[in-house]
Design a protein around this nucleic acid. Sequence first.
RNA 1: GGGCCUGUAGCGCAGCUUGGAUAGCGCGGCAGCCUUCUAAGCUGUAGGUCGAGGGUUCGAAUCCCUCCAGGCCCGCCA
Length: 563
Amino acid sequence: MDEFKKEIVRLVSKKYPISDSMLETPPDEKLGDFALPCFGLAKEAKKDPKIIAEEIADEAKESELIKEVRAVGPYVNFFVKKDKLSELVLPNVVKLKNDYGKSLIGKDKMIVVEFSAPNTNKPQHLGHIRNNLLGMSFSNILEFSGHKTIRVNFINDRGIHICKSMLAYKKWGNDREPDVKSDHFVGNFYVMFNLNAQDKPELEDEAKEMLKKWEEGDKETLALWRKMNNWVYKGFNDTYEKLGIRFDNTYYESEIYEKGKKRIIEWLEKGIFKKTDDGAIYAPLQDFNLPDKILIRSDGTSLYIVSDIELAKIRFDEYKMDKLVYVVASEQNAYFQQLFKVFDLIGYEFTNKCFHMSYGMVFLPEGKMKSREGNVVDADDLMDEIIELSREDLKKRYEGLSDIEIEKRAKAIGIGALKFFMLKHDHLKDMNYNPKESISFEGETGPYVQYAYARISSIVNKFGKILDKADYSLLRAEEEKKLVKLIADFPEAVEESARNCRPEVVARYLLDLSHAFNEFYQACQVLAEDEELKKSRILLINCVRQVLKNGLGLLGIECLDEM
RNA sequence: GGGCCUGUAGCGCAGCUUGGAUAGCGCGGCAGCCUUCUAAGCUGUAGGUCGAGGGUUCGAAUCCCUCCAGGCCCGCCA
């Protein structure tokens, strides 16, 4: 679209100097493809904006790319030549294919994205799903935009909460082996601990005692810890695989907290950190309008932030990256302010390279999810349920599909619906999850986009071959023009998404493109048309299909040729 | 009490960064469209004081201020 903007700027500048950022898209396609509001020019020239618009329309006229220039009130509207539009846009898609939409805004930049960061005392829930999907899709988008992208997980495998499920197992587990999915098995003991701790507060002390033993390297405690953590990892791997989540590197809190603790004590001696009366070590932050942050408890055990401080150093040494993104929910906004301020206090120079990608909470109709009480939408259960819904749907819609085909489609559609639902919302905002209403396969959903893809595949497959050129001048319908313009917008949407850290921009874009295709599908025939027009339309819709594929790929959603 | 965030149609949301033409979309309601390439689709219709009040501006959902309502955080939990 840049070519058109430049042309318009050139045309208008004969009369008034303007820049391409002054051009807008008219509210209605009948008003043209580009618009120039003349209020600003009117102020400078001290003239009526309507007069200015007319002057520009008289002077600019048509050109090689522009069909018509029309003054409408204080606006000048520009109509582009449709065949030129297709000629400029479509060959690019034909040529670049899976690379169409890639950019170089991240060239020579390395980004480390930390996401998921689960605790090993319980299975993952809906909140983790939002985290995992945001982290994964944002990483994909960064990579597509030219960044060297490293996806990292940081397993919170130690700490008081881990000891709680261990203690419950020790007390009431009778050395049983898991009889349900193994991370759920561990999570059940975590809930059990908290239920019992309500009227037996001494359990909290026992858990603290266990943490102390763990940090002292007590063999029996460590053996139990290893056994239970391995159960959890086994379960996590299943969950990640089902969700299509992968990492380039995984760090474990247990492997770094000790070194972190030593450094904290060094910094304490240097006077950077301070001690409370009862011996806890804290970072003084009140001068920066933040609450002080305790780093090491008075009993000598360390808090999570100790590991976070150490890990940042490890990662910057290892990757020397340009940016470190932490994908963590908004409830920890204040924590990250503290963490980054602590980096400053220590004298680390990478604070300005750290970014907390905060995202909103997921609420259930009954309010906030509480792992301690087991009041959560479990990730595995949710995926199973939604795949089951999709499976039932497929059986109702089509008879005679093989079981293998049903499973393949049910998984792609169900998981696609879940992913799209989680990713289409403004990630900064809280969201409400209502199981009845949230997961649908109609309207603004993943399956809606997948369906547009499948419809195109069906036509293209019936036609039988892929074309790399056609007569663009035959694409004259408004529906076709709209599609071409949207295809042209894709690289811009990806760039905005990468730059502003907003995967939802890609999701919204895909809805627009799918809707435009469905309008085209309703209005225009493909296979029944004359040979040349048929070819042009095949090429056009195949370009649409390519863009849908590239966009869905960024969100980690599968495409289906039939559904 | 302090910090951060949110408030747009019955419900769920987009638009706000970068102010412009009648404020869009989905669900739900109503009325239509399958002898045409997949109806998981399309079209039409009803439905809105853009939380309230001020201000800036030729022009405000968008920028600024105040207030109201809701959420998150202010743990030696994460």
